[in-house]
Simulated scan of single mutants.
Amino acid sequence: MHRQDLLQLLQNYHPKDENERKMVLETQVFVQQNSLCFERSLPSGHVTASAWVISPDLQQVLLMHHKKLDRWFQPGGHCDGDPDVRRVALKETEEETGAFGQLVGNEIFDVDVHLIPANAKEAAHFHYDIRFLVVADPATKPAANAESKEVRWVSMSDVPYYNSSESILRMQRKILASV
């Protein structure tokens, strides 16, 4: 997989609302204009990959409490040069939660562009997050790593109590609409 593969995935993806449609277009332009789009060293931003990990019955989602950002999110992270965003999403899920999941299809589940605030190590920059739907067994106890304070299976209906950002609620709505 390389930039053309990601661009093809984005071309085939059908966003659910106008806001997400704009972010898909932003991501396409960013990837087309930046040959180093998968590299964390690109100062303006970079492609990241994450997973919305759900239980087989669609009633639970796996969330992690991110140490640096002190908020609950889906597992995911930097591509670090790997253009295979599916592989990155699964790898990050395993590393950050201990969960071994399976992709639900090969297509994109969600796209989000968000600003990462400046910190002591880097200037503010954008993450162009490519998200995949992953199913995992909630009977397997999740395990936090150095990047997370805690990892927990959460009832799908309780997601807004953990993170009420539009980015997270959009993914929740997509699952609830399919139930």
Rank of each mutant, 00 (worst) to 15 (best):
Asn145Trp: 00
Asn119Val: 06
Lys149Val: 09
Phe126Asn: 13
Pro160His: 07
Ile108Arg: 00
Asp137Cys: 09
Val113Lys: 08
Thr97Gly: 07
Val104His: 09
Glu122Met: 10
Glu150Ser: 12
Arg131Met: 13
Thr140Asp: 12
Ala139Lys: 12
Arg152Cys: 09
Ala146Ile: 09
His127Gln: 14
Ile108Ala: 00
Gln102Phe: 07
Gly105His: 05
Phe126Ser: 12
Lys121His: 12
Glu107Ser: 14
Ala144Tyr: 03
Tyr161Val: 02
Tyr162Thr: 07
Ala146Lys: 12
Asn145Ser: 11
Gly105Phe: 04
Glu150Trp: 06
Leu103Asn: 02
Ile108Gly: 00
Pro142Gly: 07
Val154Tyr: 09
Leu133Gly: 02
His125Met: 06
Val104Cys: 13
Glu147His: 15
Asn145His: 09
Glu147Thr: 10
Asn106Phe: 03
Val104Pro: 05
Arg152Gln: 15
Asp137Tyr: 08
Arg152Ala: 11
Ser157Thr: 09
Trp153Gly: 00
Ala146Gly: 10
Ala124Trp: 08
Tyr128Gln: 05
Phe100Glu: 10
Phe109Gln: 02
Arg131Phe: 04
Phe126Thr: 06
Asp112Val: 11
Val151Cys: 10
Ser148Val: 03
Ala118His: 09
Arg131Pro: 00
Asn106Leu: 07
His125Pro: 05
Glu150Lys: 13
Val134Trp: 03
Asn145Cys: 13
Glu150Met: 14
Glu147Phe: 10
Ala120His: 09
Ile130Gln: 03
Arg131Glu: 11
Ala143Gly: 08
Val111Phe: 00
Gly105Glu: 05
Phe100Thr: 13
Pro138Glu: 02
Glu122Lys: 15
Ser157Gln: 14
Gly98Asp: 05
Ala123Asn: 12
Phe132His: 02
Pro160Ser: 08
Trp153Arg: 01
Val151Asn: 03
Val159Gln: 01
Asp158Phe: 06
Ile130Asn: 02
Glu122Gln: 12
Val151Ala: 06
Arg131Asn: 14
Ala99Lys: 04
Glu150Thr: 11
His125Arg: 15
Met156Ala: 09
Asp158Trp: 03
Lys149Gln: 10
Pro117Asn: 11
